[in-house]
Structures are given as C-alpha cells and as structure tokens.
Write a protein that binds this DNA or RNA. Structure first.
Length: 211
DNA sequence: CACCAGGAATGTA
DNA sequence: TACATTCATGGT
C-alpha cells in the first residue's frame, strides 16, 4: 500500500507545520477536529507570536482560549496545551527531551493530561523523529475496510506495531501522511459516492469487498 | 438542519 | 477490561 501511495503522492514531508513547537501544539488542537479548524486556531496563535512552547507555558488559560476557539473543545484544550508546554519546559525543553530514549519520551508524554496514544505517536514521529507508526481513526478505517483487521482501534494498534518494526523512519513519516491525504480525496473507484471510502459517511461503508 | 472532524478524560458495570 | 458520555467550532 505504501509503495502505491508513494507513487501517487511522492515525498509529503508530512505534518503541516513550520516548527517543532507547532507540531506539538497542533497535535493537541487536532484531537477529534478537522485540520481546517486547527489551522484557523494556529493562525491566531502565530499572528500573536504565541505559537511556541515557551509562550503558551507562560500564558493564562483564559487567554489561550481566545486564540484557539475555532479548533473547538477550547475549555479542555487550553488546559491541555498549557499542561504539556509547562511539563516540557520543566523537563528542560525540547533539546533535553531529544536526547532521551524512545521509551523515556513515551513515558514522559503519556502521563501528561490531554496526551493519549494517538497524540503521543504524532509527537514521537513528527516532533522527535522516532520510528513510530501513527494509528488514528483513518488508519483503523483503512485497515478494517480492506479486511486486514477486524474493526476497532485495539486491532489497528496491534497491526501498527508490526508495521512500525518493518519500515524506515522516512517511510513511516510518508505513510501516515499518505493515509490522511487519500482519506481527504474522493474515491476514484466509486466517484458517485462523493467522498473517499475512508470517510465515516461513505455510503458504501458496508460494502468494501472490492477495495 | 443533521452530521462529522487526524481524541481523551471520566464515569459506569 | 469494555463501553458510554461529554466536550464545541466550522464545513458540507
């Protein structure tokens, strides 16, 4: 699958962000939220020069809310953003975390309130360049709808670990981007549906015998 | 106007 | 451990 998708999309240089700090902030903001809304929120932060770990760590929660409103869930996400930025700074910043082992960074991230499995994987791969295969909802739909796993995030994570152990960092980076990109495009096999077969509201959701 | 988006915390059994 | 509920804006 990755080979075919690579031919289609080439080098994606994925995670749409300019800086490492933006990757981390975006990973929180995109939780169950369309990327367009995340972009609106990120633009608000960027224009105010608040799109950094240090800036958010020293900004009151009520202030953060004003900027990230378009991304939704702002009451929780404002707290989550402040929390992860504060923790990273307490640990010595990005430069200190970069030197740690994969397992140590994972342990550090997962105990932060607001950082679950998917968000942790986004940060591991795209901020710290570690060999991680990101499993999100698109990934679970792809795997289950072409019939290589039974539906469910747990199953997707199990297969994800196998993939992770057999692919290079560069390919893992591209592969996740490819899965998101194809999920946002219109299904070529059945264009009359109007959406990609990886979308939740695809009208052929119950019929994927011919991927 | 109903539904959904690149999740995670919390509560219940 | 395994589900259900809650959170909220903007696009289709």
């Amino acid at each position: 699958m990755h080979k075919l998708l690579k031919q289609e999309y080439g080098e994606l240089h994925w995670w749409p962000a300019e800086t490492v700090d933006q990757v981390i902030l975006g990973a929180i903001l995109t939780q169950n939220t369309s990327w367009n809304n995340v972009r609106l929120a990120m633009n608000n932060l960027s224009k105010a020069k608040l799109d950094s770990i240090d800036a958010i760590a020293s900004l009151p929660v009520e202030e953060i809310k004003k900027y990230i409103k378009p991304a939704g869930f702002f009451n929780q996400k404002s707290v989550y953003l402040k929390e992860i930025c504060t923790q990273i700074r307490k640990e010595g910043g990005i430069s200190r975390l970069e030197k740690m082992s994969d397992k140590d960074i994972e342990a550090f991230l997962i105990k932060i309130k607001g950082v679950g499995k998917e968000t942790m994987q986004d940060i591991m791969l795209y901020a710290f360049k570690r060999n991680v295969f990101v499993v999100d909802k698109y990934t679970e739909r792809l795997f289950s709808r072409i019939g290589i796993i039974k539906p469910g995030m747990k199953e997707a994570h199990r297969l994800g670990k196998e993939i992770e152990n057999s692919m290079s960092l560069e390919d893992l980076n591209n592969f996740h981007g490819e899965i998101v990109e194809i999920s946002k495009s219109i299904c070529k096999a059945r264009p009359e549906c109007g959406v990609c077969f990886l979308r939740n509201n695809c009208s052929y959701e119950k019929d994927f015998t011919e991927p």
